[in-house]
Amino acid sequence: MDALTVTRTVTVQHAQGLHARPAELIAKQALKFLAEIELGHERHRVDCKSILNILTLGATQGTVLVLTARGEDAEQAVEALARLVESDFPEQAPLTEKIQQPENAR
């Protein structure tokens, strides 16, 4: 394959790790690119466009992950995603996780 492959090592900065909200933002960002993008470590590499897969990484603060993109816009994808993973996800409000869904979904 002559598609461009870009790899970069990133370290999770957010105090609570890659939980729901950060994972959501990463997946959303990844979905904007055409490239195939993987996130993970040696034993476990997952589809970066899947919030569920990202959550399975169980990445906490300080976890080192490898970001790999394959495709035309691989460069931009890795650039944008690395910035995001290493950010503090400022949009994230500390209280969000504690909200119980008010509507009874059962």
């Binding site: 959501e24 899947s50 569920l52 949009e91 996780e97």
Partner: peptide
Amino acid sequence: RIAEQLGSDYGAIFSAHVQMLNDPRL
């Protein structure tokens, strides 16, 4: 509804749920 009542931060978990429901892998 929650964002209207309590502010957009509070709606964030729902937005993660939306993302999960529409997860391409899933």
